[in-house]
Design a protein around this nucleic acid. Structure first.
Lengths: 280, 280
DNA sequence: CGGGCACTTGATGAATCTCAACGGAGGTGG
DNA sequence: CCACCTCCGTTGAGATTCATCAAGTGCCCG
């Protein structure tokens, strides 16, 4: 019993606005966001359920349950039995690996429509990472066995899930090569761009990361310390590449009109668009 | 046209034995290893085709072609159109990301039965990594569209592939946390244990890595330099943990009777078996 | 028998972690 | 509404790991 949502905690819908001087507005999570009526709509928008017929979607929907979490609350912990697969409905969720040395690694930040948790037929019977609510959020959960049945009944869903997981594998491999080859400042820049693509919303002055990202989050994404992350961010701010404050960040020139020049730190993309210059 | 095996190169079956003082015997790759007759047997042993009926397997087999490569030969390069999926039949294959800084990252070493290359329905239309023959090897290739059809026709295959890719994602995430959190020596030790699990064969005196692994390979797996890898290996050798020579390695105590004690470098496993000790 | 490659080892310096201290924002309780 | 307190972010100085540069050895192959 270590955080598996068998007995879902009370949703914290009544959470007061966190925003002060922050330009980041908290995702508006209202109680009816997870009512049975709306879950259909949410599941229907999930990439791998998109192609299901209405009645099929309804059948699938019956297998899911909703769970609410408040910020920083644990959804599951590594080591717990991996018996459930989740889909984010509202808010954002962090996937974190805790290492023996006490250092936390932020593997991913998930938005509505993203899946996480246990994948069926996977050898592992335990979660290998922690899942934690980053914002006030609502997730839909299905048992592994039920999801397994869904995959068997609707092959197209299985193919979509495969594509998603394969994409994540590619991303992870990109992260591996960055951790191996790039200096801290470039890794932070790369993390910012990745977050921008994923969570950015256009605002006057640039891409605003629409969820509270701390220096520690950036450090945990980049395999460094909060101090180093802070130093890099200060540099970027001084150079005018970003604006930032307490748990909010705006990337001033995401498209790289001024940034992605060769030699510049922001030139490091997530995936090199063209063939890498071999060093023969 | 940059290395896609449209026109497969001549197999180099006649390659003379590389073994000198090395205890690593080259995989015995004979020409008939890839004859049509034997391909059925090979494909039937592939994890995700194992459950196909004989006639189904035969139909699938017809879609594959065999390609032979000699050591260090490129199977495909990153940036090339990703239009083919491969399965290793004989030998071993390295997946390598080449970074802009010229540093190579060794993502994986693949054994017979392992798949690599393009996954269908995946957004990417180009390979993101290089695939290179590590030993003399034979691979079976199928076009992405044909593989897509296979997946659609045999849902069980799709589920198996999903499980495999999901497992690789977990591994990759483990690597990420190691690169982020562990010092060089521990990363090398961890790489050795991973290789041991994957490529090790019992031999008197310990687990012998049954494929030629250079210091540079270890460095590229661990995100460090050949010099650092060499220093770590020298330490391990002095401590009696391993034996090694020119492109061969024997792990003397893989089960960790003497090694996996707490505090020891070899205590770092690939995935922590029990809940991580939080540093609260 | 010569050259190249894999490996080793040492010295140096740069990148980055660690430790430490400080300022401000936001939230809490009086 | 103000005082306090905690957490986030910042910055500096010192310690440390690690990459880099530079030789040097032995094995294998041509």
């Amino acid at each position: 019993m270590t955080g598996t949502p068998e007995a879902p905690t009370i949703p914290a819908w009544d959470r007061s606005q966190d925003a002060g001087t922050t330009p980041v507005r908290e995702e508006d999570v209202s109680p009816h966001g997870c009512t049975i009526a709306h879950r259909l709509q949410i599941l229907g928008a999930v990439p791998f359920f998109r192609h299901l017929a209405a009645d099929e979607l309804e059948a699938v929907n019956d297998l899911f349950s909703a769970f609410g979490y408040e910020p920083q609350e644990t959804i599951y912990m590594s080591g717990a039995a991996a018996e459930r697969l989740f889909v984010v409905a509202h808010g954002t969720v962090k996937l974190i690996r805790r290492t023996a040395s006490g250092q936390d690694i932020l593997l991913d930040i998930l938005r509505p429509g993203d899946m996480f948790g246990s994948l069926p037929e996977l050898g592992t019977r335990e979660y290998l990472e922690d899942a934690e609510a980053q914002t006030s959020c609502c997730v839909l959960g299905v048992s592994s066995t039920d999801f397994q049945r869904i995959l068997q009944r609707y092959p197209k869903v299985a193919l979509s899930v495969l594509a998603i997981i394969a994409g994540r594998l590619q991303d992870a491999q990109g992260t591996i090569s960055q951790l191996s080859a790039m200096p801290v400042e470039a890794r932070i820049a790369s993390a910012l761009l990745k977050l921008g693509e994923k969570l950015g919303v256009e605002s006057e002055g640039g891409l605003l990361l629409d969820t509270p990202i701390s220096r520690q989050d950036l450090a945990a994404m980049s395999g460094t310390t909060t101090e180093s992350a802070s130093r890099a961010m200060s540099d970027f701010r001084r150079t005018g590449l970003i604006e930032s404050g307490r748990r909010w960040i705006r990337i001033k020139d995401p498209d790289g009109r001024a940034c992605r020049r060769p030699g510049h730190v922001f030139a490091y993309g997530t995936n090199p668009p063209d063939g890498p210059p071999r060093a023969d």
